[in-house]
């Protein structure tokens, strides 16, 4: 073996200890990219916030990036209480309460139902369970447009069309693919021996679910709960079709209010109303952090 000459960077006789700190251009580029990207993502939220605190005169200046001169909360009050739709005169608060009335029961029922069905499909596996699971999963991929008209007909026939229970039921049904998938996969990771042991100890169908499995499902209940809550709150299509005039959720009301084509557009009020609509799921996102991320990655398998 002969010594090969190596004229490489960093080989110096006096080198000692850690490599000397150098500012690498790649690193600067990296942070620059991240900063620009962050600006792109923050921009709309910033513009909404800034505009919602401006007066209408200030909005007309068309300086969307400028901070408001004064913190004017009148737009927020107008959005909440007295933003007028043609023919009707109530603020977005009505839609807010409708959304609460729709989202809370829909979330609770769909999560529990998903856990229960997931439990049966994972552990008991009655005849045809795999077929049923395949149908449900496949249905989750199909756009609602394919189902929606016959369901409207069926609900009208059952006198459920345009009622609060109707819209809740619709949400529960069309959430089934996602919740069942989440819980079935969650239970699939629990050792089957545990279930067998409970059966040997004489626990029955409901007892195993209620006393053994459900308490172990805590994390997934939270994840699915957050995912369902934001998903149902943000729904537009089902609310538009099924909720009926009395129960229009916030998203539908927002769109109807904002996208009116006559009269002067009060952008500051519109932005405040939009922010109010986005506030609840955004709060859920910022508070729950990692849980939300876990939910969308787990749900991503389905879509």
């Amino acid at each position: 073996m002969t010594a090969r000459p190596r004229a490489a960077r960093g080989i110096t006789r006096e080198a000692e200890g850690p490599r000397p700190f150098r500012v690498e251009p790649g690193r600067i580029g990296l942070y620059l990219f991240l900063a620009v990207a962050a600006a792109f993502f923050i921009l709309p939220l910033y513009v909404m916030l800034a505009t919602s605190f401006k007066s209408l005169d200030e909005v007309r200046l068309a300086q969307i990036f400028a901070l408001p001169h004064t913190l004017d909360i009148s737009a927020w009050i107008a959005a909440w209480t007295s933003d007028c739709e043609p023919g009707q005169c109530f603020g977005i608060s009505a839609g807010f309460w409708n959304s609460v009335k729709i989202t809370v029961p829909s979330t609770a029922i769909s999560v529990l139902l998903g856990a229960f069905v997931g439990y049966i499909l994972s552990f008991w596996r009655p005849k045809g369970a795999d077929t049923l699971f395949a149908i449900i999963v496949l249905a989750g991929f199909i756009p609602l447009q394919v189902f929606v008209y016959p369901v409207v007909r069926a609900f009208a026939w059952l006198n459920l069309y345009g009622t609060l229970s109707g819209i809740v039921l619709v949400h529960v049904i069309f959430s089934l693919p996602l919740t069942v998938l989440l819980f079935r996969n969650y239970y699939a990771a629990i050792p089957h021996d545990l279930f067998q042991a409970a059966r040997i100890d004489g626990a029955g169908f409901l007892r195993i679910f209620w006393s053994l499995m459900l308490p172990m499902t805590g994390p997934m209940l939270v994840v699915a709960g957050i995912l369902q809550f934001t998903g149902i709150w943000n729904d537009f299509l089902l609310g538009l079709v099924f909720a009926g005039r009395e129960n229009l959720p916030m998203t539908v009301q927002l769109n109807n209010t904002v996208n009116v084509t006559f009269g002067e557009v009060r952008y500051n009020v519109n932005m405040a109303a939009t922010l109010l609509t986005a506030a609840v799921p955004l709060a859920a996102y910022f508070v729950s952090g990692r849980w939300f991320v876990r939910g969308i990655t787990a749900g991503a398998v389905k879509g």
Partner: peptide, 23 residues
Amino acid sequence: DLAGGQIWIRGQNVTWAEPKDRG
């Protein structure tokens, strides 16, 4: 990285060298 001291490989001080240049 080392916090202190040196590493020599085949008579060359490679303490600051990239892995690929160390032989």
